[in-house]
Design a protein around this nucleic acid. Sequence first.
DNA 1: AAGGTTTTGTCAAAAATTTATCAATACATT
DNA 2: AATGTATTGATAAATTTTTGACAAAACCTT
Lengths: 214, 214
Amino acid sequence: MHSSEQIPHPVIRRLPKYLVHVQELREEGVEWASSQEIADALGLTSSTVRQDLSHMDLRGISKKGYETSQLEAVLRQILGADIMHHVVIIGAGHLGRALAEHGAFARRGFEICGLFDRDEDLIGKSFGNAEVMSIHELAEQAGKVKIDIGIIAVPSSAAQNVAEMLVEAGVKAILNLAYKHIQVPSNVTVVDARIMESLQELAYALGKKGKAVN
Amino acid sequence: MHSSEQIPHPVIRRLPKYLVHVQELREEGVEWASSQEIADALGLTSSTVRQDLSHMDLRGISKKGYETSQLEAVLRQILGADIMHHVVIIGAGHLGRALAEHGAFARRGFEICGLFDRDEDLIGKSFGNAEVMSIHELAEQAGKVKIDIGIIAVPSSAAQNVAEMLVEAGVKAILNLAYKHIQVPSNVTVVDARIMESLQELAYALGKKGKAVN
DNA sequence: AAGGTTTTGTCAAAAATTTATCAATACATT
DNA sequence: AATGTATTGATAAATTTTTGACAAAACCTT
Ligand SMILES: NC(=O)c1ccc[n+]([C@@H]2O[C@H](COP(=O)([O-])OP(=O)(O)OC[C@H]3O[C@@H](n4cnc5c(N)ncnc54)[C@H](O)[C@@H]3O)[C@@H](O)[C@H]2O)c1
Ligand SMILES: NC(=O)c1ccc[n+]([C@@H]2O[C@H](COP(=O)([O-])OP(=O)(O)OC[C@H]3O[C@@H](n4cnc5c(N)ncnc54)[C@H](O)[C@@H]3O)[C@@H](O)[C@H]2O)c1
């Protein structure tokens, strides 16, 4: 199979984990990794790993496994780590600032090229490499540099409004950190990332465990 | 079906979305919500919504739907919003501090009762309601208050080590924000929440879209 | 009170995802 | 070079998840 086909969503969500792992292996000087080794490291089955990797432009070799350099290369390519994406953050609050100051994004192909807020007091301040601009300048800025990804880091109540501004500005990919579902046209991709949901998932697990017999 | 049964994982991951939505409805004064309304608001099918809610201690009423107050109550109960969880954050860097200063967690049952770092210069400083303690005090602190959830907000290289300290301290639920898979005993639940992975998912979508015919 | 209508709960079908299996392959050893 | 062995790639089976369909329920209108 080739990378031109549609890759199932569960597979896509696992690819970043493979990438991190294979990069670690390479740092350790490991040149080959079998599906079993990868599975053990990531808590998967070897079958799942082989199935997943079969979607990519890559062939393993019997008795050796997959070449780590090649595996890293195809994963980087698919996950966009080789091209620089222009990312803007809307909301320069606690979370938005933490993101702007986080160096790791640029190293994986995501350059923060704009940080916007509606609070006049914040405008002009710098966090990481980004200077806070007025939210009213978003459209203008979108005209100058193509914005690939918009990150919503404003309170939930403003999330839908901000989403619409991003769509209006031509942004086709949105990372929504606000704890609220946003509605966008079908040609725009939204991915939610919510720490609160993860905590609630843990709370559920704790609740079940407390009641379980084991 | 009753809440004592095992709820499928995909369902669990959707429950927080239902909770947010139903809370919004209640704020608007809406007393009833049909599966179709919920589905439309959240981008699901009504069948999925009914299937999901059938796992819970709740019955809808023909022609009216589900009572929002009742729905909120069962969701809060399952997601642990009614009992206070004791949460510690390991790593008082950019992200750890943003989390500590985020007020919304306490309102949903997650009280930050500890913030730990190994950097001596940070110890004693306060963020939100939490004062930074030395990582060496973690075990001691765990003896005083039961830690329900540990959040890993240290660099990837320290994540496994921190995970082991949490396990050692008796923590049974871990939220891992570091971009690395951690190994823990099977009686410990780990949930990963990674902004980087979400960005990479978006990058994949952008890559595909660029190549697609439409 | 009867009839019409909307929406649930449930069951079954369909689709998607994961896991198991195994022949083919390619390497290592002798 | 022949043999043994570990590991892939592919296929099929099993499992899980989503969707479809519809009788039963309960509300509303008249
Ligand atoms: N802080 C965290 O650790 C954390 C964790 C998970 C999720 N979140 C979510 O991220 C979002 C932001 O959280 P935060 O803690 O950074 O909040 P915050 O209050 O610290 O910051 C929000 C910022 O958004 C700005 N803002 C508000 N409305 C705006 C608008 N319409 N346009 C532009 N800017 C606007 C505000 O001026 C403020 O600077 C929230 O939805 C929150 O739930 C935060
Ligand atoms: N900042 C972000 O927006 C962001 C976003 C997504 C993910 N993350 C992830 O969260 C983690 C933290 O990111 P950050 O930006 O806050 O980094 P940071 O460098 O600002 O902070 C890390 C903190 O961890 C402390 N630390 C290191 N090793 C430790 C140990 N063994 N025990 C206790 N404390 C230790 C350091 O002293 C530092 O204060 C990283 O894994 C990062 O990938 C951060």
